[in-house]
Amino acid sequence: MLPDQSKPCILIYLAPHPSGKEKLREVQAGMEEEGIPYTVMQSNDTNAAALSYEGASKSKLGVGVGIGPEDLCIHYVKLPAQKPLFSLQEAGSPVQWRHFGYNAARLVKGIPFKDRPSKNESYETNHRDDLYQVVYRIVQKVLQESAQGHGEVKAWSKTL
């Protein structure tokens, strides 16, 4: 299958595998959010670096993304074939996949890359902190109320 040569876009080369669809969705979403067009190609190769390089060399924008079963790469046509610009050497999480989409698009747009999130995505830690705060406040409130009014704390402390 040959990519459409007429249209400038990022080429995503996908090696079919069970989680390929999910990864592809996030990568596409990242590019769409940044407003850069893409075309998806299927390939039998399973090495993401090779896939992404093939994409980059055929893309009119010079940017390719390779999605393999075990890894994920962004490649730029002017880089040496074995050295992709970004590479994720693990299955990764949806947030990480999304960031590959953002950054491939940002390479085209020429704006600074988004920092790569760690495996424990930052949203979740924020969320956990907030949750901790909420729980902390509730516990405080309950303790205060019982200390002020109902005398249960006092009674309890007496028994101690």
């Binding site: 730029y76 002017k78 880089l79 610009l85 970004f86 940002r106 390479l107 020429g110 704006i111 600074p112 890359f113």
Partner: peptide, 10 residues
């Protein structure tokens, strides 16, 4: 040699 990605577009 290509520049490190951290400085790209900065």
């Amino acid at each position: 040699q290509h520049l490190p990605p951290q400085v790209f577009s900065r």
